[in-house]
Design a protein around this nucleic acid. Sequence first.
DNA 1: CTATTTCATCGTAAAAGTACGATGATAAGG
DNA 2: CCTTATCATCGTACTTTTACGATGAAATAG
Lengths: 111, 111
Amino acid sequence: MAIAKTESFSKKEQDLAAFAKALAHPARVAILKVLAGKNECVCGQIVDVLPLAQSTVSQHLIALKAAGLINGTVDGPRSCYCINWKAFEKFKNEFNSLFDHLQVKDQQRCC
Amino acid sequence: MAIAKTESFSKKEQDLAAFAKALAHPARVAILKVLAGKNECVCGQIVDVLPLAQSTVSQHLIALKAAGLINGTVDGPRSCYCINWKAFEKFKNEFNSLFDHLQVKDQQRCC
DNA sequence: CTATTTCATCGTAAAAGTACGATGATAAGG
DNA sequence: CCTTATCATCGTACTTTTACGATGAAATAG
């Protein structure tokens, strides 16, 4: 990146980009799908489903948690994750509000 | 990445991840915002707005075009881009359908 | 207390992303 | 034809991401 220019952009742009970044890997999409389907906190069962090593899955889970898309608690010897629907809703709205009402303008003129 | 495992996932997961990847940088979000706001094809005006070099903006534009989020045509000596609303709608639906109806299940049990 | 299980973290290696200046290609203007 | 303008591409440097095995920490089971 030479020198990170990320902070030269607005907070809204950064937030949306950070959210998208968390979704920007099929493994993390798959993890979210598993968590959403179960809706009860899962942990190493995810490792069994994905074609990835345990440490790699753990990294993806941490990335998702850092992005705020999932919550995690410690349950004895195992970790328990589930989707943070509130954050999900927030970003969905942010995404829609950013582009939806702009589409109302007169449609395509070129391209 | 050692060895790319991207192809070990379903096409839906890959598509959604690719879409998110295109949004996963504030500069590209900013570009889309500019294009959406004008709705007429813009080109190097984007360079004036962004705090990035021309070559860097060009790279981002190419990334967005490769992801299918924008269309581009050559207009004399300059390039003209605009948002591909159709693709945008497609991915928005894909995103919603992936997570929305799953939320209907009984809410949170832990975390 | 000693396994065992479960997960996080460390270390490492390879791949991809980000950014810039410089150069190249293409079309318009003189 | 020659210049200028506009944008893409190349080459390069640095950062970040991805992935794995190995190790470490914490709680349960015996």
